[in-house]
Design a protein around this nucleic acid. Structure first.
Lengths: 248, 248
DNA sequence: CGGAATCGTCATTCAACTGTTACATTATCC
DNA sequence: GGATAATGTAACAGTTGAATGACGATTCCG
């Protein structure tokens, strides 16, 4: 369930959007004042922020700057909401790091549509993730290894899905806990190790020689990148020229 | 450089956008007719498509549907451009898979800003650092030298990343300890020497003649500036020619 | 209710990494 | 050239980090 936080001082609009967003199935939180907005974000860890620019007590642009400057918030998409329609206002808003900019008055359904867009691209809408003999189907929550179905638990599945959807990228235990267990977790980071172990026991033919899940000492874990080999081969073609130069 | 393809029948607007997008440094292609648009996309493989909805010969919405239905194109972001401003039109456009929707008349700078948004996130920070045959990938924590992967420890990696991300700049041991080990370190500054040594043993072909990591006596260490490397390689190429000449 | 599956934690083990030291080597200055 | 300081290098002992097996707690399900 995606969580949205709204900062909007107009009570009518606030209620209207709250109603519609909740009806769409989003988890909702909000405030009618800009004061303490950043603290609210840190507490709620929303997946999307909708921000009125003109607030009586503070400037939405400043809040946005604050979001982008806070490491644990900087990745969250921001949609600006405003009555200002001048060119410079729009540009400033967008260039400040907003992901979208909606001018009042607007259609609620358009806002909903634009909210959905922010969530679309994030999850590589692929229904199935494949790598080598490993295949994960999101819609049926099934994992198949070499045409043999595996029995994964819910947590194991989510962890594998998280890793497979971002192949090659190394995640710290912290990031994995955030992504798989959720930010309001109460879980030790060592737990990740254990789940990686359990996953490997099911997924890897030889758990001692992991083919899919890589440990990166001091950093975390990553899923094997399918293109890693291709890339290094391409690099070889190029760099051989360099080597010839040096050899000469 | 990112490539953008524009489908827009209005000659004035087409020329205006072409001019501005190219001025922004984007590679540009386009057509003033909707016919054959999908073929154009398949040929050009753009990173972004800007699509007028109202075309004399075809419907932009259909083209968008076609994009989303074509596997090799489906991931490409689409921005709709249109004079239609009714609610249903906007919703349909957005829900059809468009990533943004701009109503005419619009400000060119706003369009540019919205184009940039589509590309943001993809390259929030430089993912890979390159210099000569040395390549460091931040997201996968990998280092490749002349197409051969190196096994670096966490500290070695962080040190190399620190230096490579600021090529040419000389850092004192103090600064390196702050940047790599953190402010709350309890580490002797001679430790830096040892890690530089270990890095050189892995990174430099000939540790006695460092190509990448330079010692600056009395000050500290620095990574070779990319241009400096090129120059030295160029010099090497020249001198080898000389040698060959003399040998001949 | 009972049993099984799942969850999260803990303690242990071992290999790898870390940081220090001592000593060798090199550069710099007079 | 020789004294001196800075850097390079090798070896070491302590520490850390990841893999692993075992354990109690919780949830699920009949």
């Amino acid at each position: 369930m995606k969580k949205i936080v709204l900062i909007e001082d107009d009570s009518d609009l606030f209620a209207l959007l709250k109603y519609n967003l909740e009806k769409e199935g989003y988890s909702f939180a909000g405030s009618q004042t800009g004061k303490g907005a950043l603290d609210l974000f840190r507490r709620e860890r929303p997946d999307l922020i909708i921000l009125d620019i003109m607030l009586p007590d503070s400037d939405g642009l400043d809040i946005c700057k604050g979001i982008r400057a806070t490491p644990e918030l900087s990745h969250i998409p921001v949609i600006f909401l405003t009555a200002r329609a001048s060119e410079t206002d729009r540009i400033v808003g967008l260039e400040l790091g907003a992901n979208d900019y909606i001018v009042k008055p607007f259609f609620v359904r358009e806002l909903i549509a634009r909210v959905k867009i922010q969530f679309r691209g994030q999850q590589s809408q692929q229904r199935t993730l494949k790598s080598g003999g490993l295949e994960l189907d999101r819609s049926s929550c099934r994992v198949v290894l070499d045409s043999q179905e595996l029995q994964l638990t819910a947590t194991e599945f989510k962890l594998l899905e998280f890793l497979m959807s971002r192949p090659g990228i190394v995640f710290s235990r912290e990031q994995l806990l955030d992504g798989v267990w959720g930010h309001d977790r109460a879980v030790t980071d060592r737990t990740v190790d254990v789940y990686i172990l359990r996953l490997r026991q099911k997924v890897e033919g030889d758990p001692a020689n992991p083919l899919y899940i890589r440990s990166v000492r001091g950093f975390g874990y990553s899923f094997h990148h399918p293109e890693a080999v291709e890339v290094s081969q391409a690099a070889m073609a190029v760099s051989s020229t360099d080597r010839n130069l040096q050899d000469a």
